[in-house]
Design a protein around this nucleic acid. Structure first.
Lengths: 246, 246
DNA sequence: GAGGTTAACGTATAAAATACGCTATGTCTG
DNA sequence: CAGACATAGCGTATTTTATACGTTAACCTC
């Protein structure tokens, strides 16, 4: 975010773990921190120091809006990373100080995670204006600062959330999708494999999946019927979960 | 925490939602903010501004340690509250500024929740040195600052966590407990009622509940066998949860 | 020792999860 | 254009888990 340095709180930041899905693999939106002043190229999460008079949650939304151009996306708080030494490396500190024109000491960062329909995102724009691209989550082995740890936490929470809340699967899917897409996204996030016949039997109970009069085209096998997600039906027909594990 | 004012970061604090259980009701540990300088008595969560060079998570443990004298208690991050106006009321700001001898603007507070065996806590000490007492959660209708909202978030996360993780039930129970105690704690937290016969059938499958050669005494009905919780067996016999809801 | 109260065990039924057989419908290849 | 192939889509049988509820047991109080 661009603003005069003195308005930033030099000890509070937000970072966003932005997930997407390309019908096969889970993706994450990362910024290539390459700049004239630093010669080592390193990937980082989108994020920013927080302006002094801004709500934290609201500010995370702004950061995401500026990056993707998208408003009203799924965005939730993840965890707050507050190790005293998380910005202790000289090059990290210098990068932040030159970017924001502030003198920093320690930064507590509140991380958020967001789910985005990848086909809604303007990849060219993100690349041109922020050097941001989608990466395969499984291909990422290291990130700047403690951002790898933050990404891991994002994955953990995403998996946990998916157990109770199928909606997040639909935040990542395009408007029209096949039942196989749903299974792919569940498998990509949980790491489990499901029997296709039983999986679709389970989905068949869901009243919020509306079949369209449309099929896949150009696939070298029987084309699947496409579905859409009915948000209203979802909230109306969802039964109360009254269950616990021993 | 007592320290020279200049060492506090004036924009970051921790607050703790501390839950206990008295074999019937869910309790919360609160501090009566009554002081010579303020004449209105108001309850608040235990918490503190954070010293500049301290880890956030570690610092929450210290706050709890100073309050209860207990170390190594169950303590997890809950949520970070970062509204720009959460300390906007004049009396709130003045109370904080005089307590910590710092000038504050906005405070982002990271909230934690903790589970404590109520019989391990030294109630007299907590009351004498910190004006802290256990209150019935259901009796609390309002708290200082945005602490009521924080408490609600604590309850929400506790309920969510109890679905997958029975251990938290055992963090609240004493070393020896009856199956009825377990049911009571589940009912107190979830707000659901369970059929006692089916509930204990379910518990019967749990290999980590070890029956003791000991019964309740002095109860006006058939005395229940007491059990203990075997942490090792819990982690060894716990089966993988491979389930999701549509 | 009768009555009250909760523990503890049991049985019958419904619902959900799991395993796996089989046919249908499109594209691609020779 | 016939046959291979791949995934969609439907069905059945079995096991596991949840739910509902009947019954006896062991302690207290009066």
């Amino acid at each position: 975010m661009s603003d005069s340095g003195t308005h930033y709180n030099p000890s509070i930041s937000v970072d966003c773990v932005v997930f997407g899905f390309d019908s096969r693999n889970l993706k994450i939106l990362l910024i290539d921190q390459n700049s004239p002043s630093s010669n080592n190229s390193k990937l980082k999460l989108p994020g920013s120091l927080v302006l002094k008079n801004r709500d934290l949650d609201e500010y995370a939304g702004l950061v995401l809006m500026e990056l993707t151009g998208l408003d009203n996306v799924f965005l939730r708080q993840l965890y707050t990373f507050g190790s005293a030494d998380r910005v202790s490396r000289k090059q990290d500190r210098e990068w932040i100080e030159s970017t924001y024109s502030v003198s920093i000491r320690r930064i507590v960062s509140t991380a958020y995670y967001s789910l985005i329909k990848i086909d809604h995102s303007n990849e060219e724009l993100m690349e041109r204006s922020h050097n941001a691209r989608w990466y395969d989550v499984s291909s990422i082995k290291t990130l700047a600062l403690d951002h790898y740890k933050i990404m891991q936490k994002g994955l953990e929470v995403l998996r946990q959330e998916l157990r109770f809340n199928p909606i997040i699967g639909f935040e990542l899917l395009p408007e029209k999708f096949s039942l196989r897409d749903v299974q792919n996204i569940y498998e990509a996030i949980t790491g489990n494999k499901y029997d296709n016949r039983n999986f679709r039997k389970k989905l068949g109970q869901a009243k919020y999946l509306i079949p369209l009069n449309e099929k896949q085209k150009g696939v070298a096998h029987k084309p699947a019927i496409l579905y859409r997600f009915d948000k209203e039906k979802y909230f109306n027909t969802r039964k109360e979960i009254n269950l616990f594990y021993i």
